[in-house]
Amino acid sequence: MSILGTAVVIGLIGLVCGVLLAYIAGRFSVKEDPRVEEAIAVLPGANCGGCGFAGCASYAKAVITGDAPVDRCSAGGAAVVDKLSKLTGRSGSASEPKAAVVMCGGDNNAAKQKSVYNGITDCGAANIVSGGPKACIYGCLGLGTCARACPKNAIRLEGGIASVDPALCIGCGQCVSVCPRGLIRLVPRSHRIHVLCSSPEKGAAVRKVCSKGCIGCGLCVKAEGGVSMTMSGAIARIEYDKAPVANPEAVAGKCPSKCLVNLDLSDRGERA
């Protein structure tokens, strides 16, 4: 008898709650464009924030409401832009696929240490303590703030320097904004030649602090012919908005300090 009573009471509570929930769900339901769901399904779901929105869902919403253009998803590339265009009827052109590159090659073997850093493992924090442990004030601090910001774990820390795995990089740019030295750039994947040094100092000053720094000899620019490469003061610069360097092997071979590298970024690897 007592079991029966309990069952009835519990059953009644359940019934009341169920009715209440059903009513509330109907009363406060938010009408949403069904296309938002479709847009979310189209997006890669990396939630990288590269579009400037909090995540894929909020970008999808903004696309459907017309608050955001359809071509902001760097991780998705052309395929996503196509699908979003079909969904919204608005057109957009996919930007060239990009990958992040750390413009510094000064690992522990190459870059001179000026002091022993004792403090928080964070590049921004180290930068405010007499400019970090490395003698070069422009180079990678090697404490991995970018690696922690990367949503795809595409950044490795090896030998005191960060490097991006192009196959994993989705080009969201999170790492770009957290680097206190502004060393990371999103570059078009079609480019193969990159200058892994950001020091504007003259050759002698660079040599003093790093064996892999650009000394501004200009040999690479000469070999390239000055089409997509120029000298910017004492450092070679790649004009990323121009066509990729035509003869990458020959140009890379010219660099005496090996800061000019020939990287294959074409492999976009697995996408989410």
Binding site: G119, I120, D122, G124, A125, I128, V129
Partner: peptide, 11 residues
Amino acid sequence: PLVQHFRRAKG
């Protein structure tokens, strides 16, 4: 390193 944290945050 409390002070370093605060210096970073202030920055």
